[in-house]
Design a protein around this nucleic acid. Sequence first.
DNA 1: CTGATACTTAGCCTTATGGAACAGTATCAA
DNA 2: TTGATACTGTTCCATAAGGCTAAGTATCAG
Lengths: 114, 114
Amino acid sequence: MEQYQEQLNGIFHALADPTRRAVIGRLGKGPASISDLAKPFDMALPSFMKHIHLLEDSGLIRTAKQGRVRTCVIEKKQFAAVETWLDAQRAIWEGRTDRLEKFVTAIQEQEDIK
Amino acid sequence: MEQYQEQLNGIFHALADPTRRAVIGRLGKGPASISDLAKPFDMALPSFMKHIHLLEDSGLIRTAKQGRVRTCVIEKKQFAAVETWLDAQRAIWEGRTDRLEKFVTAIQEQEDIK
DNA sequence: CTGATACTTAGCCTTATGGAACAGTATCAA
DNA sequence: TTGATACTGTTCCATAAGGCTAAGTATCAG
């Protein structure tokens, strides 16, 4: 539960940068290598790599190296955390008291205490 | 369009902090004053205010002062931007070529160039 | 084996973030 | 009118974020 919060921190932070959102957009069309991904950006490779690392740490993408090429893939499952959070908010707005809301208000309470 | 990107920067950044998400969660239940909102957090008021300002700048909440009390309200409409972006990503994943995707790939292209 | 390619590592720099303290200002309540 | 309440403004601090260059490593192509 606390872990869910940290997951959200990472995901939202990752999505807060336009470069990283663009990478997500690109990877939505299929896997790509680092240099392919980096091409459209006017940025030194090491700088770009930081974005990739951050995306990977957030769980939004996965990467693997084959020979000298690192290939990146989108991790669609991870986006569910955002969906869940949004749904949770709507549940609160609508005063719903179903299982989803209970799950969420529990988290919310945890958060409030902390 | 460029504006949409900056909106997303602000929103995602705002949501990347657990204190701010907790405030959103609380405001989902109804309006509240600054000090009511701040109560659950072990944080000096000026520090807390920064979160409020940031949330307000992102458009996720609105605030107004009456006498000495500033009341905060959630701005549900603003969450639509996140929804739109998520839908857009799914549209890309699914290779959809409807209007939504066209809108989004246009944005994506813009982003890629920049 | 040698050069080019594709990252990686390491360090540096500037600005932003998230926290603090402390001192104000402006209501409201008595 | 005086004290408490509810912010607000200012300044400071440590760390993280996002960029850079320069140098290093590890394939792969010839």
